[in-house]
Simulated scan of single mutants.
Amino acid sequence: MPIFAVRPRTGVFAFALFAATLFVALIPAPPAMAQAYPCNGPGPGERMVGMTQGGNGVAGVPLCVRDEAAAPVPQGPPTQWVNSYYVASWHPEASDVWTAAGYRDAESAGNAAMAACTAAMGPGCTLTPGAANGSIAIARDGIGTLWAATGASDGKAKKEVEKLCLKEQQAICEVINTTNSPSWLEEVGRPVIQAIVFSPKGNFHRIYASTAWVDGNTADGDWGAKVWVNSGYASGKDAETAAVTQCERDSGAKCKAVRTVSDAFLTIAVDAARSIRVGSSPDYKDARKHAEQRCKDTGTKCTVTATFDATQKGAFVHDAYQALDGKNK
């Protein structure tokens, strides 16, 4: 078997190898690629370098890299969060409150609320509980007394004032307004003025009504089922005097005031033992339900025979038995 021997062409091979090496060395190395990331298009200091692959109804997403050569993004002025204090002022003869919100300290908020209340009502204004960066809720109970509570939001403040009514007086309250006073962001050295006082709308003086009935069995005739209601008065004393005076004039007997309220709804009901019950509620819609629940809480059942609005001027004589019989027919 022949043996073949091959002698390498040393000179030519060496030159070719050197040339190839030189060629590779002369090609510049590609720059290091920055890490690309999805973006909504290039922003300050960014370059768009491609798109992700779309498909199946999904569009491609732009890819960006940080452009190191771009000019630095200018920084905005320094900012700070500012506390926002709030508080309300009320008066014994006012049906609503004056609420100060957006103040930088508690003292300034209190001074503003007191000044607004005093300007409208004169002496006698005081402050409700207050706080910062939250809400205050004002509620009215069944005889017209106002309540206030604070919370982190309007909803939490409402829950707090309703709980307060039940805890302190076992009373049902209706929230009549809320005010939110959140903190805000502002440039350092350029204060923003957010302070404001919210005043009541319309007639903010309390309007009263009172009820009266014959005191004991001192009257001739069937007066035991009758209740006198006088409403729309500027003071509780005037409303009571009117109700008692009318009762005594009609019956010829000694009468007494039964229940006096302001800015609320009086209810008259007859219970299972045919006793007359006079109650009140802060809102008309639920007045009947509240009266029935009060009877249930004392172990009896009631039928509401009439509801009266304390703010509407009037003089009424309500015969509860007659109204009950009319309902049962």
Rank of each mutant, 00 (worst) to 15 (best):
E168C: 02
S275T: 07
D286A: 09
P44C: 02
P123N: 13
C117S: 05
P72A: 15
C173W: 12
D105F: 07
V270L: 15
F13T: 06
A115M: 13
G232M: 03
V58S: 12
A257Y: 03
F198D: 05
R66W: 05
N111W: 06
N217E: 14
L26T: 07
W184T: 03
G221A: 04
C125R: 05
P30K: 03
P8G: 04
K289Q: 13
S275H: 13
V304E: 09
A148N: 06
T218G: 15
S281G: 00
W228Y: 10
N180Y: 14
L22R: 08
G314R: 01
D238H: 04
V258K: 10
S280N: 10
T99Y: 00
S210L: 10
C295R: 11
T150P: 01
G279F: 14
R7W: 15
R9V: 03
D220W: 13
A212E: 03
A242G: 08
R277K: 13
A70V: 00
M51Y: 10
N180V: 02
Y321D: 07
V197S: 05
N56Q: 09
A59R: 13
A149W: 07
H318E: 01
K289L: 11
G236I: 01
G202H: 08
A320P: 00
T303W: 02
T307H: 08
W213I: 01
S280E: 12
A242K: 10
I143L: 12
E240P: 02
D283P: 01
T300L: 10
V87G: 08
A257V: 06
V82C: 01
D325G: 05
V65K: 06
Y233T: 04
V65Q: 08
K237D: 13
T311E: 14
G130P: 03
W81T: 12
P191T: 08
T218H: 11
D222G: 05
F13M: 11
H205F: 08
K256D: 07
A287T: 03
C247G: 01
P30G: 03
V24Y: 14
C247I: 01
A34R: 12
I138P: 06
W81L: 14
P123R: 14
I136W: 06
V161I: 08
S199G: 00
T52H: 11
D141A: 06
A25M: 12
T179G: 00
P2G: 08
F308G: 00
R259I: 05
Q170M: 10
A269Y: 04
A310C: 08
